[in-house]
Structures are given as structure tokens and as C-alpha cells.
Amino acid sequence: MLKKLAIFIPFLTLGIVTTAFAAEPTTSIIPGIDLGSSDPEGVSNSLQIIILITILSIAPAILVLMTCFTRIIVVLGFVRNALGTQQIPPNQVMVGLALFMTFFVMAPTFSEMNQTALKPYMAGEISQKEAFTSASKPLKEFMAKHTREKDLSLFLDYAKLDKPKEVDDIPLKALIPAYAISELKTAFQMGFMIFIPFLVIDMIVSSVLMSMGMMMLPPVMISLPFKILLFILVDGWNLIVQSLLVSF
């Protein structure tokens, strides 16, 4: 689906710009919008463009809160802060790595959504409502698997909703925020474990400098090379990525 959207966007932009310059204001005809049509072929081009733009506008929120992106980017941020390397690796590298890891982890879910929802809808075999239901099912199963019952109960109780018997019965308006705070808690737990060895190095270096009377020398300048060396010796990036993949 992402590949198709990525391919379609340049052609969509080119088509809109070309139409805007080629069409005369006096002779342009706006196609009708049939909101009641359940047939994909019956939906007007204008409505399809509106739906596409709406999906693209909320795509970042969908990517961040409904996938494993949150846990990955928070853990990578903890790694950089624990090392104390300021802006190294750069934010672009961190976000890029988190995105590709997200696509890797979510590939089975996206594939199932494509097979059960996107392809049948594009072929005209199912309606928009059926496509949405089929597409949300794999996402619900993934999010419910990594959502704590306590967090889900928080939003269900606040909205005064009955406890669902199956995963399909969980409303997305309660599942998405519950999944988000569950991911944040898991990411902070992993970040705490990452901080411990680097904190020990800082404490040792600070104690040594204090005993030598070098109180004016910042301990960070001395501890930073040792932390980087330790991270290299244990193959830190491999361990971090492996831990993230295993956690899913």
C-alpha cells in the first residue's frame, strides 16, 4: 500500500497542476460526489482525492501511534543520551533507522492488510466499510498483543465501554492510546537498562577525578571515550537492534 501511494503521489500532483492550468474557469465542470455509493467504481474522482489527502495528513500519526515506531525511536534516543554524544548519530539517521526497522517488523501485518483489504477493495469485491474493517483487524491484533490490560482498562472505563470479549471488539479509539502508553512504558524500561552501564562508567570516572583533585575537569570529557569504547567492544548497535526485534 505504501509503495502504491508513493508511486501515485507524483502523478496525482502532476495531474492536479496540469488540470489547474489547462482548464478554463468558465468551462470547468466539477464532478459530482456520491457519498452513499458503496462501489469503489462509483465514487467520484474528487472524493477519492479528498480521501487520499486526508489519509496522507494523518499518516504520520498512524505510523507513530499504531506501529512499533514509538518504542524503537524512544529506545534509540535513550542510547544516544546514555552515550552522551549530543547529536551523534544525527536525528535524520535515528528516524531513518527507526522507520526501516518499523517497516521490517510490521511487514507481516502490512502484507495481511494488503491481501485482505486493499487488493479486494481495488478490485471492487468489497465496500469501503468492509475494507476498513478488514484492514483494522491485523492492526488490532498487533496492538492488542503489546498493550497492557491495565492501560486498556483505563480508556475503556473512562469511556464507560464494556470489556470486549475478543480483539475485534476493542474500539480503536481506546486501543490506540492504550497501545501508545504501553509502548512508552516498555521503551522507558529498556532505556533504564541501557543507562545503567554508562552511569557506572560516569561514577567511576567522577570518583577517580575527585580523588586526584581534578575537580575543574569535566568528567564527561574523560568518560565519553570510555563509553564509546565499551559500546564498540560489546557491539552495542547489534545488541540494541536485536533486543528491539526480540521484544516484538
Rank of each mutant, 00 (worst) to 15 (best):
F78Y: 15
V75R: 09
G77M: 04
K137S: 15
I55R: 13
H146A: 09
P60C: 06
L47V: 05
L56V: 08
N81H: 14
T102M: 10
L152F: 05
T102A: 02
L47E: 06
I72P: 01
T54G: 15
T109C: 12
R71N: 02
N81S: 15
N91C: 01
N114S: 12
H146Q: 14
I49P: 05
K145L: 10
V64Q: 06
H146M: 14
K140Q: 13
C68M: 08
A82Y: 12
P60T: 05
I88V: 14
L152K: 03
F110R: 10
T67F: 03
E149I: 13
M66F: 01
Q87K: 10
V93W: 02
S44A: 02
L154R: 15
S134V: 07
L118N: 09
T54Y: 11
V75M: 02
L47W: 04
S57Q: 13
L47Q: 13
I53G: 01
H146L: 14
F100Q: 05
I49Y: 11
I50M: 11
Q86P: 04
I51M: 13
A61G: 11
V74Q: 03
A135M: 08
V64K: 11
F104M: 10
L56N: 09
R80M: 12
T67N: 01
K140D: 08
V75P: 05
G96K: 00
A144E: 10
A123P: 01
V95H: 00
E149N: 11
K119W: 07
K129A: 15
K150W: 02
L99A: 14
S127Y: 07
Q115C: 01
S57K: 14
K119E: 15
F103M: 08
G77A: 03
S134L: 14
P138N: 08
C68Q: 04
S111P: 06
E125Y: 06
Q48C: 09
S136D: 12
S134M: 08
F155W: 12
F110H: 05
H146P: 07
V75W: 01
N114T: 13
R148Y: 13
I50D: 09
F100D: 03
P60G: 06
S46G: 13
G42L: 03
M66L: 04
L47K: 04
A82E: 09
S153P: 00
L56C: 09
Q92L: 14
A59D: 07
N91E: 08
A135T: 05
M94D: 05
G96H: 00
M106G: 07
P108S: 06
L97K: 02
L76D: 06
A144H: 08
D151A: 11
Y121H: 09
S57H: 13
A107Y: 15
F104Q: 06
S127P: 07
L83Y: 12
K140C: 04
I72C: 00
F155V: 12
I88C: 04
A123F: 08
D151Q: 11
V93K: 00
F132R: 13
G124K: 03
D151Y: 09
A98I: 00
I126C: 01
I58C: 03
I55F: 14
